[in-house]
Protein backbone atom coordinates (compact mmCIF):
# COMPACT_ATOMS: atom_id res chain seq x y z
CA UNK A 1 0.00 0.00 0.00
CA UNK A 2 2.77 2.38 1.05
CA UNK A 3 4.80 1.38 -1.92
CA UNK A 4 2.00 2.13 -4.35
CA UNK A 5 1.40 5.48 -2.66
CA UNK A 6 5.08 6.25 -3.01
CA UNK A 7 5.14 5.32 -6.66
CA UNK A 8 1.90 7.27 -7.17
CA UNK A 9 3.41 10.46 -5.82
CA UNK A 10 6.62 10.11 -7.80
CA UNK A 11 5.48 11.58 -11.13
CA UNK A 12 4.20 14.83 -9.60
CA UNK A 13 7.40 15.17 -7.53
CA UNK A 14 9.59 14.58 -10.57
CA UNK A 15 7.63 17.21 -12.45
CA UNK A 16 7.58 19.77 -9.64
CA UNK A 17 11.25 19.57 -8.62
CA UNK A 18 12.84 20.54 -11.95
CA UNK A 19 10.31 23.35 -12.26
CA UNK A 20 11.15 24.70 -8.82
CA UNK A 21 14.85 24.29 -9.47
CA UNK A 22 14.52 26.17 -12.75
CA UNK A 23 12.60 28.94 -11.02
CA UNK A 24 15.21 29.19 -8.26
CA UNK A 25 18.01 29.29 -10.83
CA UNK A 26 16.19 31.95 -12.83
CA UNK A 27 15.70 34.13 -9.74
CA UNK A 28 19.34 33.64 -8.73
CA UNK A 29 20.50 34.57 -12.23
CA UNK A 30 18.22 37.60 -12.26
CA UNK A 31 19.45 38.79 -8.86
CA UNK A 32 23.06 38.27 -9.97
CA UNK A 33 22.40 40.27 -13.14
CA UNK A 34 20.91 43.11 -11.07
CA UNK A 35 23.89 43.05 -8.73
CA UNK A 36 26.46 43.05 -11.51
CA UNK A 37 24.70 45.92 -13.31
CA UNK A 38 25.24 47.97 -10.15
CA UNK A 39 28.93 47.13 -10.05
CA UNK A 40 31.19 50.17 -10.50
CA UNK A 41 33.21 48.35 -13.14
CA UNK A 42 30.17 48.36 -15.39
CA UNK A 43 29.06 51.87 -14.53
CA UNK A 44 32.00 54.14 -14.90
CA UNK A 45 33.23 54.00 -18.45
CA UNK A 46 30.90 56.40 -20.24
CA UNK A 47 30.46 55.32 -23.82
CA UNK A 48 31.93 51.88 -23.02
CA UNK A 49 29.46 51.22 -20.22
CA UNK A 50 27.05 48.30 -20.11
CA UNK A 51 24.11 50.57 -20.91
CA UNK A 52 25.92 52.07 -23.90
CA UNK A 53 26.58 48.55 -25.18
CA UNK A 54 22.98 47.47 -24.60
CA UNK A 55 21.05 50.52 -25.79
CA UNK A 56 23.49 52.40 -28.00
CA UNK A 57 22.64 56.05 -28.46
CA UNK A 58 19.03 55.29 -27.41
CA UNK A 59 20.19 55.36 -23.81
CA UNK A 60 20.34 59.16 -23.89
CA UNK A 61 16.68 59.36 -24.92
CA UNK A 62 15.67 56.88 -22.23
CA UNK A 63 17.83 58.72 -19.69
CA UNK A 64 16.13 61.99 -20.64
CA UNK A 65 12.71 60.39 -20.11
CA UNK A 66 13.74 59.22 -16.65
CA UNK A 67 15.15 62.68 -15.89
CA UNK A 68 11.80 64.20 -16.85
CA UNK A 69 10.10 61.69 -14.58
CA UNK A 70 12.33 62.86 -11.73
CA UNK A 71 11.04 66.38 -12.45
CA UNK A 72 7.47 65.07 -12.12
CA UNK A 73 8.39 63.65 -8.70
CA UNK A 74 10.03 66.96 -7.77
CA UNK A 75 6.65 68.58 -8.48
CA UNK A 76 4.77 66.08 -6.28
CA UNK A 77 3.64 63.88 -9.16
CA UNK A 78 2.26 66.69 -11.31
CA UNK A 79 3.34 66.41 -14.92
CA UNK A 80 4.33 69.49 -16.91
CA UNK A 81 1.42 69.90 -19.32
CA UNK A 82 0.73 72.39 -22.07
CA UNK A 83 -2.37 74.57 -22.19
CA UNK A 84 -5.26 72.91 -24.07
CA UNK A 85 -7.22 74.61 -26.83
CA UNK A 86 -10.59 73.83 -25.24
CA UNK A 87 -12.12 72.43 -22.07
CA UNK A 88 -14.55 69.56 -22.15
CA UNK A 89 -16.12 67.08 -19.73
CA UNK A 90 -13.25 64.59 -20.19
CA UNK A 91 -10.68 67.25 -19.41
CA UNK A 92 -12.53 68.38 -16.33
CA UNK A 93 -12.53 64.74 -15.20
CA UNK A 94 -8.83 64.43 -16.04
CA UNK A 95 -8.09 67.58 -14.02
CA UNK A 96 -9.86 66.09 -10.99
CA UNK A 97 -7.91 62.85 -11.41
CA UNK A 98 -4.55 64.59 -11.92
CA UNK A 99 -4.60 68.18 -10.58
CA UNK A 100 -2.36 70.57 -12.49
CA UNK A 101 -1.30 72.71 -9.54
CA UNK A 102 2.30 73.75 -9.06
CA UNK A 103 3.99 72.48 -5.93
CA UNK A 104 7.39 71.20 -4.90
CA UNK A 105 8.39 68.33 -2.69
CA UNK A 106 9.87 69.54 0.56
CA UNK A 107 12.03 68.04 3.31
CA UNK A 108 13.00 64.40 3.18
CA UNK A 109 10.29 63.49 0.65
CA UNK A 110 12.55 65.11 -1.96
CA UNK A 111 14.69 61.96 -1.75
CA UNK A 112 11.87 60.11 -3.52
CA UNK A 113 13.19 61.79 -6.69
CA UNK A 114 16.60 60.17 -6.30
CA UNK A 115 15.90 56.76 -7.88
CA UNK A 116 14.92 58.52 -11.11
CA UNK A 117 18.01 60.74 -11.08
CA UNK A 118 20.06 57.62 -10.37
CA UNK A 119 18.65 55.78 -13.39
CA UNK A 120 18.84 58.86 -15.60
CA UNK A 121 22.52 59.33 -14.78
CA UNK A 122 23.29 55.63 -15.07
CA UNK A 123 21.83 55.54 -18.54
CA UNK A 124 23.40 58.81 -19.60
CA UNK A 125 26.25 59.92 -17.33
CA UNK A 126 26.75 62.95 -19.59
CA UNK A 127 23.32 64.32 -18.61
CA UNK A 128 24.74 67.18 -16.56
CA UNK A 129 21.28 68.61 -15.82
CA UNK A 130 20.36 65.40 -14.00
CA UNK A 131 23.52 65.53 -11.84
CA UNK A 132 22.90 69.20 -11.06
CA UNK A 133 19.20 68.76 -10.19
CA UNK A 134 19.96 65.77 -7.97
CA UNK A 135 22.63 67.82 -6.19
CA UNK A 136 20.28 70.79 -5.76
CA UNK A 137 17.46 68.56 -4.46
CA UNK A 138 19.74 66.88 -1.92
CA UNK A 139 21.47 70.02 -0.68
CA UNK A 140 19.00 72.91 -0.88
CA UNK A 141 15.77 70.99 -0.21
CA UNK A 142 16.83 67.76 1.49
CA UNK A 143 19.41 69.58 3.66
CA UNK A 144 21.96 66.81 3.08
CA UNK A 145 25.00 68.67 1.68
CA UNK A 146 27.39 65.78 2.32
CA UNK A 147 25.15 63.52 0.24
CA UNK A 148 24.91 66.20 -2.47
CA UNK A 149 28.71 66.42 -2.52
CA UNK A 150 28.89 62.65 -3.15
CA UNK A 151 26.50 62.93 -6.10
CA UNK A 152 28.50 65.83 -7.50
CA UNK A 153 31.78 63.95 -7.10
CA UNK A 154 30.32 61.07 -9.11
CA UNK A 155 29.05 63.50 -11.74
CA UNK A 156 32.51 65.03 -12.01
CA UNK A 157 34.09 61.61 -12.44
CA UNK A 158 31.98 61.20 -15.57
CA UNK A 159 32.30 64.83 -16.73
CA UNK A 160 35.71 66.00 -15.50
CA UNK A 161 35.80 69.14 -17.66
CA UNK A 162 32.27 70.41 -17.12
CA UNK A 163 32.27 73.95 -15.70
CA UNK A 164 28.64 73.71 -14.55
CA UNK A 165 29.44 70.86 -12.19
CA UNK A 166 32.41 72.76 -10.76
CA UNK A 167 30.21 75.83 -10.39
CA UNK A 168 27.72 73.73 -8.41
CA UNK A 169 30.55 72.29 -6.32
CA UNK A 170 31.65 75.83 -5.53
CA UNK A 171 28.10 76.86 -4.70
CA UNK A 172 27.69 73.85 -2.44
CA UNK A 173 30.94 74.64 -0.63
CA UNK A 174 29.84 78.27 -0.19
CA UNK A 175 26.56 77.07 1.36
CA UNK A 176 28.63 75.02 3.82
CA UNK A 177 30.98 78.00 4.46
CA UNK A 178 33.94 76.00 3.11
CA UNK A 179 35.60 79.02 1.56
CA UNK A 180 38.86 77.46 0.32
CA UNK A 181 37.27 74.48 -1.48
CA UNK A 182 34.69 76.89 -2.88
CA UNK A 183 37.35 79.23 -4.26
CA UNK A 184 39.26 76.26 -5.69
CA UNK A 185 36.19 74.74 -7.39
CA UNK A 186 35.16 78.09 -8.87
CA UNK A 187 38.70 78.72 -10.13
CA UNK A 188 38.71 75.31 -11.83
CA UNK A 189 35.30 76.08 -13.33
CA UNK A 190 36.71 79.30 -14.73
CA UNK A 191 39.69 77.45 -16.19
CA UNK A 192 37.57 74.81 -17.93
CA UNK A 193 34.93 77.31 -19.07
CA UNK A 194 34.86 77.05 -22.88
CA UNK A 195 36.35 80.13 -24.51
CA UNK A 196 34.52 80.31 -27.80
CA UNK A 197 30.89 80.29 -26.73
CA UNK A 198 28.44 81.93 -29.15
CA UNK A 199 27.46 85.46 -28.13
CA UNK A 200 23.78 84.53 -27.91
CA UNK A 201 24.37 81.64 -25.47
CA UNK A 202 22.47 83.24 -22.60
CA UNK A 203 22.85 80.26 -20.27
CA UNK A 204 26.64 80.19 -20.61
CA UNK A 205 26.86 83.95 -20.13
CA UNK A 206 24.74 83.71 -16.99
CA UNK A 207 26.90 80.84 -15.70
CA UNK A 208 30.07 82.86 -16.32
CA UNK A 209 28.61 85.81 -14.41
CA UNK A 210 27.71 83.49 -11.53
CA UNK A 211 31.20 81.99 -11.60
CA UNK A 212 32.86 85.38 -11.40
CA UNK A 213 30.45 86.68 -8.79
CA UNK A 214 30.68 83.65 -6.47
CA UNK A 215 34.43 83.36 -7.05
CA UNK A 216 34.88 86.98 -6.01
CA UNK A 217 32.92 86.30 -2.80
CA UNK A 218 35.00 83.24 -1.94
CA UNK A 219 38.31 85.06 -2.47
CA UNK A 220 37.06 88.17 -0.70
CA UNK A 221 36.02 86.19 2.39
CA UNK A 222 39.38 84.39 2.37
CA UNK A 223 41.08 87.79 2.32
CA UNK A 224 42.47 87.34 -1.20
CA UNK A 225 41.48 90.82 -2.25
CA UNK A 226 43.45 91.02 -5.53
CA UNK A 227 41.86 87.86 -6.90
CA UNK A 228 38.42 89.03 -5.76
CA UNK A 229 38.96 92.42 -7.44
CA UNK A 230 40.19 90.74 -10.65
CA UNK A 231 36.98 88.67 -10.86
CA UNK A 232 34.82 91.71 -10.18
CA UNK A 233 36.55 93.64 -12.96
CA UNK A 234 35.99 90.79 -15.37
CA UNK A 235 32.34 90.60 -14.25
CA UNK A 236 31.89 94.35 -14.81
CA UNK A 237 33.39 94.08 -18.27
CA UNK A 238 30.57 91.63 -19.10
CA UNK A 239 27.81 93.36 -17.10
CA UNK A 240 28.69 97.03 -16.60
CA UNK A 241 25.26 97.79 -15.05
CA UNK A 242 25.84 95.53 -12.02
CA UNK A 243 25.71 98.19 -9.28
CA UNK A 244 26.48 95.76 -6.43
CA UNK A 245 29.64 94.50 -8.13
CA UNK A 246 30.76 98.08 -8.81
CA UNK A 247 30.21 99.09 -5.17
CA UNK A 248 32.11 96.03 -3.95
CA UNK A 249 35.01 96.72 -6.32
CA UNK A 250 35.16 100.34 -5.17
CA UNK A 251 35.25 99.23 -1.54
CA UNK A 252 37.97 96.67 -2.27
CA UNK A 253 40.09 99.21 -4.12
CA UNK A 254 39.61 101.66 -1.25
CA UNK A 255 41.20 99.08 1.06
CA UNK A 256 38.22 98.69 3.40
CA UNK A 257 37.49 95.42 5.26
CA UNK A 258 34.65 94.09 3.15
CA UNK A 259 34.35 90.54 4.49
CA UNK A 260 31.20 91.07 6.58
CA UNK A 261 29.47 92.85 3.71
CA UNK A 262 30.60 90.09 1.31
CA UNK A 263 29.04 87.45 3.57
CA UNK A 264 25.74 89.36 3.64
CA UNK A 265 25.74 89.79 -0.16
CA UNK A 266 26.61 86.12 -0.58
CA UNK A 267 23.63 85.00 1.52
CA UNK A 268 21.32 87.13 -0.64
CA UNK A 269 22.85 85.71 -3.82
CA UNK A 270 22.60 82.07 -2.74
CA UNK A 271 18.99 82.31 -1.59
CA UNK A 272 17.82 84.07 -4.73
CA UNK A 273 19.64 81.91 -7.30
CA UNK A 274 17.23 79.08 -8.01
CA UNK A 275 14.03 79.53 -9.94
CA UNK A 276 11.84 76.67 -11.06
CA UNK A 277 11.47 76.48 -14.85
CA UNK A 278 7.74 75.76 -14.48
CA UNK A 279 7.01 78.80 -12.35
CA UNK A 280 4.33 81.18 -13.52
CA UNK A 281 2.78 83.82 -11.34
CA UNK A 282 -0.78 82.54 -11.57
CA UNK A 283 -0.39 78.94 -10.50
CA UNK A 284 2.35 78.63 -7.97
CA UNK A 285 1.91 76.77 -4.72
CA UNK A 286 5.07 75.84 -2.85
CA UNK A 287 3.11 74.91 0.26
CA UNK A 288 0.41 72.39 -0.62
Amino acid sequence: MNRSAATGSLPSATLALPGLAALALWLAAFALACYTLEHPALQSRGSNSFWAFLLGSGRSALGQTLYEHADVYFHGGVANSSRPAFRHLFQRWAEVIAPNRHRHEEGISIFETMPWYRWATQLDPQNVDAWLDATYAASAIGQRPEFAARILAEGLRHNPRNYRLYLERGRLALRRSDWSPAAYALDVALRVFPENRPADDVEARQALLSLLNLGSFAHEILGERDQAAARLRQLLSLAPDNAVARTRLTELERGADTRAAALAYLQQTLTGEHRCARETDDEHDHHP
Binding site: A31, M114, W116, R118, F147, R150
Partner: peptide, 21 residues
Protein backbone atom coordinates in the same frame (compact mmCIF):
# COMPACT_ATOMS: atom_id res chain seq x y z
CA UNK B 1 8.05 39.37 -8.76
CA UNK B 2 11.54 39.24 -10.26
CA UNK B 3 11.38 42.83 -11.51
CA UNK B 4 10.08 44.09 -8.16
CA UNK B 5 12.90 42.29 -6.35
CA UNK B 6 15.36 43.84 -8.79
CA UNK B 7 13.88 47.28 -8.00
CA UNK B 8 14.39 46.65 -4.30
CA UNK B 9 18.00 45.64 -4.82
CA UNK B 10 18.96 48.83 -6.67
CA UNK B 11 21.54 51.08 -5.09
CA UNK B 12 20.26 54.69 -5.15
CA UNK B 13 23.39 56.73 -4.32
CA UNK B 14 23.62 54.64 -1.13
CA UNK B 15 20.25 55.97 0.15
CA UNK B 16 17.56 53.81 1.73
CA UNK B 17 13.93 54.20 2.76
CA UNK B 18 12.46 55.33 -0.57
CA UNK B 19 9.28 53.52 -1.53
CA UNK B 20 7.43 55.70 -4.01
CA UNK B 21 9.44 54.50 -7.00
Amino acid sequence: GGLLLALLSLNVFGLGGMVRY
